[in-house]
């Protein structure tokens, strides 16, 4: 086996490819080289990079973003979100989406990186998000993800700065991936305390209620009461978000 394939075998082993599979891959590649007469390094690229490509996260659509060094993920609280977005945007990171756990997933164009601007808005429903998107579109903003009641929009720097938005030497991303500020921590702590108090108060009653029910109508009343107790705060929250986002929108269109 050539030096190249020895190196590739070592890289595959480092990446946890089992012996039998690695042997099959290496044999196949060796057959390819034999048939094509090509130089392995010229054909497959440096062994380390090729091993990374071969063992990259599976995504037949060509996504393989886990193995892509140009993809960045970070998370931020609602107060730090806009600042972190714009800081990474200035370094050329373009948010593609917000994942299920609320992390921003961004990538940077390798050949022509440019700056990006971001907006964080509040939208209670898909209809609200669509309305917001339609209102912001004339200024070059486009949706780039949403999480819970937060909707995010991006705009390329070139929309306002033209070619000057292109970054000649984008800096390497900072190591920080969590942006939780004092306000966010206090807010989370208050939410946690409320949740714990509510659970401590309601759980024993939820357990005791059905057991103490005298008949089925009393049990039905208990179930309906519990459902209403759950639905009311959710409805109040949804309504508050809606009213807040509407009033914000009115203020904007007025100003």
């Amino acid at each position: 086996m050539s030096e190249y394939f020895d190196g590739l075998a070592a890289r595959l082993a480092e990446r946890g490819v089992d012996g039998e599979r690695a042997r099959a891959i290496l044999d196949d590649l060796a057959a390819y080289v034999r048939e094509s007469g090509a130089d392995p390094e010229a054909e497959f690229g440096p062994a380390g990079e090729f091993a990374a490509e071969l063992t990259g996260a599976g995504d037949a659509g060509g996504g393989a973003e886990e193995a892509d060094p140009d993809v960045l993920r970070w998370t931020a609280d609602v107060f730090e979100g806009p600042r972190s977005l714009n800081a990474f945007g200035e370094q050329g990171w373009e948010v593609d989406r917000v994942d299920r756990v609320g992390r921003f997933v961004a990538r940077r164009d390798r050949e022509h990186p440019q700056t990006w601007e971001y907006l964080q808005e509040v939208a209670a429903s898909r209809a609200d998000r669509e309305r917001l998107a339609a209102r912001l579109a004339p200024d070059g903003w486009e949706p780039c993800g949403h999480w819970s009641v937060l909707a995010y929009f991006k705009r390329p720097g070139s929309a306002t700065a033209g070619p000057a938005a292109e970054l000649e030497a984008p800096p390497p991303p900072s190591r920080r991936r969590y942006f939780i500020g004092v306000k966010g921590a206090v807010f989370s702590a208050v939410c946690l305390v409320v949740a714990v108090v509510a659970a401590a108060w309601s759980l024993p009653r939820l357990v005791a209620g059905p057991a103490e029910a005298q008949d089925s109508s009393e049990l039905l009343g208990f179930v309906l009461g519990a459902a209403a107790g759950l639905a009311l705060p959710l409805a109040a929250f949804w309504l508050a978000v809606r009213l807040w986002s509407r009033s914000r929108e009115r203020r904007r269109s007025g100003g």
């Binding site: 891959i25 590649l29 390819y32 080289v33 094509s36 090509a38 054909e43 497959f44 690229g45 090729f50 490509e53 071969l54 063992t55 990259g56 599976g58 995504d59 037949a60 060509g62 393989a64």
Partner: peptide
Amino acid sequence: GGTLYPVLNR
């Protein structure tokens, strides 16, 4: 091959 094999793998 460096382009093709990663695609085959995926």
